[in-house]
């Protein structure tokens, strides 16, 4: 099975784990660019292949035909927050549609499903520390992901962050799984994700 993984700087943890220690049977190709360089903005698909006007700004880029992949994965995504205010039903309807324009992983997923009919899996970024994390529990995160999956297009699946990477009762990522900047994860964290992806992809 071959997977094309799109992402930002968080992709590196999966890529390193894939290169260094992955024992599974899935083959991964990556398309990644840091969020500071606008992440996946501008990525489109032309003639069944990924296209960008400046592919050299990605590390790496990939031009394989989309039909060769079994599924697509998006790494390091901030989850669209659940609207907290009492918005009107008309607005929420428009909002759901708008997210397929404004949120790159959803925009590309919808397009990939249209072109290939294959599934797209969206992985959240590692939890950060700080005050906000202390207010959230793993159960809150699960509920958030469940809510996202209740309205996204068929074929798109948000997945919960692997529980073993978080501290009990809090959504702060385990320190040993983080890089020194405390917001990016390392290859051990990536390895846990690859294992979880194999389960999701039912390998």
């Amino acid at each position: 099975m071959k997977i094309l993984a799109f992402g930002n700087s968080h992709s590196v943890c999966l890529k390193q784990a894939y290169s260094d220690s992955y024992q599974g049977n899935t083959q991964y190709d990556f398309i990644a660019r840091g969020q500071g360089r606008k992440g996946l903005q501008g990525v489109t698909f032309v003639d069944g292949k990924p296209f960008h006007e400046e592919p050299h700004t990605f590390t790496p880029w990939c031009t394989e035909d989309l039909s060769t992949y079994s599924a697509f994965v998006f790494i390091g995504n901030g989850l669209p927050p659940q609207p907290q205010r009492e918005y009107s039903s008309a607005l929420l309807c428009r909002w759901k549609e708008d997210t397929y324009t404004t949120i790159e992983s959803l925009r590309l997923s919808r397009e990939l499903i249209r072109i290939t009919g294959k599934k797209c899996i969206i992985l959240p970024r590692p939890f950060r520390g700080g005050a906000r994390a202390k207010l959230e529990s793993y159960a809150t995160h699960e509920a958030h992901v469940q809510w996202l999956n209740s309205w996204v297009d068929d074929g798109i699946t948000y997945v919960t962050i692997p529980k073993e990477t978080t501290l009990q009762g809090m959504t702060k990522t385990k320190l040993e799984l983080l890089k020194e900047d405390a917001s990016h994860a390392n290859e051990l964290y990536g390895a846990i994700w690859l294992k979880k992806l194999d389960e999701i992809l039912d390998l």
């Binding site: 930002n8 700087s9 992709s11 590196v12 890529k15 360089r37 590390t59």
Partner: peptide, 9 residues
């Protein structure tokens, strides 16, 4: 920082 991380590729 992000670019350094991606440099690992």
């Amino acid at each position: 920082c992000e670019e350094e991380l991606l440099g690992a590729f």
